[in-house]
């Protein structure tokens, strides 16, 4: 099995440690991972802003980079969802179709493809899990509270394998943090208010760390926590699943 690692642009640039943790974790689990060097971005920033017409270049580049892999894995539900829903390449329609149906967010790759049953990781802290909307409502990484359907959580399943990690409950399990792509700046006030409220829910329940599957949401909440001079830290779930913390 050959896996192409997709490290979305903002992870590449701001949070390389998340890419590193993802790579190391997959390798630890025996996966043959390769990072195609000419990758950039999934095109979502333009598309969500109404300019999907401008994403042709990104799409073509993505297909060029990720053709020929059995699976493509990325530590970001949002980018994976965008590729799944919107990747098109008129010149290579079959390659695009293959990518769309074989791209996985990290957690679902671990639970659904690798069927991981145990992890060698330790995190002796109280952790709040932030459910990012695109991963949840788009990729169904966990059950949505709106639906009358059985509960499950793929990230929760994995976090429960981490030694000494205590997952805290939240009042609003799957409320949006307000990042929303360009929304975070075009609707700055609403975005920040949503983020503050989300962070508060974690703080009230005693979180020492907030984790999640999307760096964009985490970056937004981290920005708020830092401004509040809060000691609470933010980590991507890959960093926890890959780690041996004390």
């Amino acid at each position: 099995m050959k896996v192409g690692l997709f490290v979305p642009c903002y992870i590449d640039q701001f949070y390389p440690q998340v890419g590193i943790a993802t790579l190391q974790l997959l390798e630890k689990l025996g996966v043959d991972v390769e990072y195609p060097l000419q990758q950039t971005c999934c095109g979502q920033p333009m598309a969500n802003s109404g300019f999907s017409s401008m994403t042709g270049g990104c799409d073509a580049n993505f297909v060029r980079n990720f053709t020929g892999y059995d699976y493509i894995v990325a530590p970001s539900g949002s980018c994976v969802l965008h590729i799944k829903d919107h990747l098109h390449d008129d010149k290579n329609p079959e390659a695009a179709t293959h990518i769309r149906s074989h791209i996985y967010e990290l957690c679902e790759f671990l639970t659904d493809v690798l069927e991981v049953k145990a992890l060698d990781s330790k995190f002796p802290h109280k952790v709040g899990f932030h459910t990012s909307c695109h991963g949840q409502r788009g990729l169904h990484l966990s059950q949505m509270t709106e639906l009358n359907a059985p509960d499950f959580s793929k990230p929760g399943y994995l976090l429960n394998m981490v030694k000494d990690l205590e997952l805290i409950p939240l009042n609003r399990k799957d409320e949006c943090c307000g990042f929303g792509g360009t929304f975070c700046v075009t609707e700055e006030a609403v975005s920040v208010k949503m983020g503050r409220d989300r962070v508060q829910d974690h703080l009230e329940h005693g979180a020492e760390f907030i984790t999640g599957g999307d760096v964009s949401c985490l970056m937004h909440m981290e920005g708020i926590l830092k401004r509040q001079k809060s000691p609470v830290k933010v980590l991507h779930i890959a960093e926890i699943l890959n780690g041996q913390y004390e």
Partner: peptide, 10 residues
């Protein structure tokens, strides 16, 4: 108005 959303899907 269509931009006044995070597209959370709820």
């Amino acid at each position: 108005l269509p931009f006044a959303s995070t597209l959370c899907g709820s």
